[in-house]
Design a protein around this nucleic acid. Structure first.
Lengths: 109, 109
DNA sequence: CCACTGTATCGTTATATAGTTATATGAGCC
DNA sequence: GGCTCATATAACTATATAACGATACAGTGG
């Protein structure tokens, strides 16, 4: 299961994927997409972000393969590409929860 | 398995974790640690990074809980805190490989 | 105490990018 | 064609941070 040595190029690609997830704004967009596909306008309402800003974040998420894009007439529908994103977030969330639990336990001691 | 809504604060914490992994230099350090715990000096040799730079990256990885620290005399030994890092990287690597395979298939068509 | 080694921190510079405003592209309708 | 709405892109500013050199701060041995 553990991966072999990665080439510098591969390491960069991995870092690029993590960087796409390293922004609270983009995580909030992904969260908003958990309810199903949404247009940019719908996402503006859901997140409160400006249109240009939102569009740029969506480009990043699409370029890194985390969201899928579907054009329908004038609108563009974005959706989660698969559930890897959720798996990644769950892993990290689990870590954070464990840390917090540890810290609480340490303080209560 | 899918997580409930996260608070803004929690989203920030998650983003912070991803950001720690969003740097090729830090990924290379983590790779170097897959062989077991290493001192800063050993990591300098393994990665070719400058000492100050390396130390700062290690602080980030430690603050985000990805590496553990053990002082022994003058030296400080760093190691992978657990294998979540490997699981995270594997997930992302799998995605990249699938993308590359898809692209190859599209070109070969 | 002094010198030495290993690690952490500080100060600086260069680069990346989030957010904003203004503008461009493009589809559907008159 | 012109008009409007939805989305994307460009140009800019402000902020973050990676990398580097210099320095500070332990531990250890003399």
């Amino acid at each position: 299961m553990t991966r072999r040595q990665l080439t510098p190029r591969q390491v960069e690609l991995v870092a690029e994927r993590f960087k796409a997830l390293a922004e609270p704004s983009r995580l909030r967009i992904l969260q908003a997409l958990r309810g199903g596909e949404r247009t940019v306008t719908e996402l503006m309402e859901a997140t409160g972000f400006g249109q240009a800003n939102l569009s740029k974040h969506l480009q990043v998420l699409h370029a890194t393969g985390f969201v899928a894009r579907r054009k329908a007439g004038v609108s563009v529908y974005y959706s989660l590409a698969d559930d890897d994103v959720l798996a990644l977030c769950d892993l990290v969330c689990g870590r954070i929860e464990r840390e917090l639990a540890d810290r609480r336990r340490a303080l209560a001691r």
